[in-house]
Amino acid sequence: MSTSRRHALLSFAALLSGGPLATLPSLAQDAFPSKPVKIIVPFSAGGPTDVLARMLGERLSDRWKQTVVVENRVGGGSTIGTNLVAKAAPDGHTIGMVVMAHVVNPAIRSDMPYDTLADLSGVSQLTTSACVLVAHPSLPANSVAELIALAKSKPGTLSYATPGVGTLNHVSGEMLNKRAGIDLLHVPYSGSAAAHADVISGRVPLMFDVWAPVREYVKAGKLKMLGVTLKDRLTADPQYPTIAETLPGFEVVSAFGMVIGSKVPRPVIEKIGADIASVVKEPQFAAKVRDFGMEPVGSMPRDYDEFIRTEIARWSKVAKDSNIKVQ
């Protein structure tokens, strides 16, 4: 081997073992963010997902010394906005807010424009929240057990409203049908506001929803609570029973999270995840989250990735068992 070639190989080995190349991950992490960051929200402005994104963006902007812009891209059961995140330049400057539709969609949709597990990486689970089963006060059932008995006595006559086919609200109702051996009829709407209006007016007697947006209706007596979908009762409202107290093992958890394109360098994903987790755990931010009826989480990327994989598998089974499919 020539002397020049030996020197070249030794230099390359030195780079790998501790020279400039070894610092590339650190440089990538330290350089982020180098320009304004975009948070894509796959729902319209003003809803809980949008509000949470804007709260988070404000704190991240302070931390990163860069502008953080929230952009609302609606449609496709949240897939239009999330697809923009999956296809964005892999530099970490485009992040996406997701809800449980992120893990339900792969189980029920045949038109997915991206591969949820291959094209996207979890950044952080921001919050967790109960879903609840609520009813119009006129419904002659005041508990899950009474609802099941009523549904069995009048098969195919009781209905439940949802913001649309394939939403967490929808699959929760189908899971209740399957577990309880009843036949509640699904009435899909174009969004939560329309579904709320018809349940509050009594046109449709039942609805599954996240606790935060219906809490005030329950407390005002416009809706009545039948059951909470968590394993344990709500910490702030322990007077409300869980559905699992009647149907052991019944559990539906709603979660907000952040995802990013899977080709973004891992050190950048870890930095973003750590910064977001830190913000979520700040006492003032966490208090605001609890005011919305949610619990702050602030997980790291690998933990959120595992949550996503587990929930996709879980809802795939529910969709298969209940024959739920969006063409």
Results as ranks from 00 to 15, higher is better:
5 R>M: 07
6 R>K: 11
7 H>K: 08
8 A>D: 09
12 F>H: 08
14 A>V: 03
18 G>Y: 07
26 S>E: 12
33 P>C: 07
34 S>H: 11
35 K>C: 01
39 I>R: 00
41 V>W: 12
47 G>H: 01
50 D>V: 08
53 A>W: 01
54 R>N: 06
55 M>I: 08
67 T>H: 13
70 V>N: 11
70 V>E: 08
79 T>A: 08
87 K>V: 08
90 P>M: 02
91 D>A: 02
92 G>P: 10
96 G>W: 05
96 G>Y: 10
99 V>N: 13
105 N>I: 14
108 I>F: 01
109 R>W: 02
111 D>S: 10
112 M>N: 01
118 A>S: 05
119 D>F: 13
125 Q>P: 02
132 V>E: 13
135 A>P: 13
147 L>Y: 00
148 I>V: 15
161 A>Y: 07
171 V>G: 02
172 S>Y: 05
189 Y>P: 08
193 A>G: 07
194 A>I: 08
195 A>R: 12
199 V>F: 13
203 R>E: 05
213 P>T: 13
214 V>R: 07
218 V>G: 09
224 K>E: 10
227 G>F: 03
241 P>G: 02
246 T>W: 04
250 F>C: 09
252 V>M: 11
255 A>F: 05
255 A>C: 03
257 G>W: 13
264 V>Y: 03
270 E>I: 10
270 E>V: 06
274 A>W: 04
292 F>L: 15
292 F>R: 03
296 P>H: 05
299 S>V: 08
299 S>R: 01
306 E>I: 09
306 E>Y: 07
310 T>M: 11
312 I>R: 05
327 Q>D: 15
